[in-house]
């Protein structure tokens, strides 16, 4: 089935394998993201979504395959190099630094940037989240879980990424937060930033996405257009296997 090919390729992943020690998690992942595209990455627990994001951003060593980003080979680059190249990974679990202030959290996100530039970028990132801009003097630990997640996303924005990878921004938080994050995704998309989004809440995610990849057991099992009619059924089959009667089929 033809899938609308992106105009200009930003990220190309070929035959990617990675895992933790002896446990191979990713088995030959193939994936591509175009410039300015919002791509949802779906899949059941343990499918390898987080592992894939970590392998892409250099947090986990890649054992085979290649990652090309913006024409540059980024296979097994350090997270720092990936971030400098414009691929920024906002990890799961709103892990901001609780001991230092909100402003300092953002300063650290722009560690390499010249001082003046950094200040401007921080203001730019905070503009997306007025509620945490008001708390910039507070310690990271004083924020609510949702605010911490906004801060984590804002940290990602300070780098002015070409590709922003968000890992389950709503996990353990209220669905309202996802709306806020998805609003930001829309704005970023309008400005030409690509987004790779891992989320459990599928319907809302699909609403902002152009394309969808689904993973199961360390492989990409489905690549489709986000607006496709039959998508829920195809997803369910991809997760649960082909021939079981299901709630959605019934």
């Amino acid at each position: 089935m033809p899938i609308s090919a992106p105009e200009r390729s930003l990220l190309e992943v070929r035959g990617l394998e990675a895992g933790y020690g002896k446990i191979a998690v990713l088995h030959g992942v193939e994936l591509g993201i175009g410039a300015g595209e919002v791509v949802a990455l779906l899949g059941p627990n343990g499918a390898g979504k987080t592992t894939l994001l970590r392998a892409l951003s250099g947090l986990l060593p890649v054992t085979a395959g290649s990652v090309t980003f913006d024409g540059q080979a980024l296979t097994n680059a350090s997270p720092r190099d990936a971030a400098r190249a414009g691929m920024v990974h906002v990890i799961e679990g709103h892990r901001v630094f609780t001991q230092i202030s909100v402003a300092d959290n953002l300063e650290l996100a722009g560690y390499d940037l010249p001082r003046g530039e950094r200040a401007a970028r921080i203001e730019e990132a905070l503009a997306f989240f007025p509620e945490i801009a008001a708390k910039r003097r507070d310690r990271g630990g004083a924020l609510s879980g949702g605010q911490q997640q906004m801060l984590a996303v804002a940290q990602g924005l300070v780098r002015r990424p070409k590709l922003l990878m968000l890992d389950e921004p709503s996990a353990g938080l209220s669905p309202v937060l996802l709306d806020r994050v998805l609003g930001v995704v829309r704005e970023l998309c309008a400005k030409g930033t690509s987004v790779l989004l891992v989320e459990q809440l599928i319907e809302k995610t699909l609403a902002v996405s152009h394309r969808v990849y689904a993973m199961a057991q360390g492989r990409i099992v489905l690549a489709a257009d986000a607006k496709e009619e039959d998508l829920p059924h195809r997803l369910e089959r991809a997760y649960f296997g082909e021939d079981v009667p299901t709630a959605l089929h019934a």
Partner: peptide, 12 residues
């Protein structure tokens, strides 16, 4: 505080 998050953020 959080070595992993610091690395993810691109700190050297």
């Amino acid at each position: 505080e959080d070595n992993f998050a610091a690395r993810a953020l691109g700190l050297p």
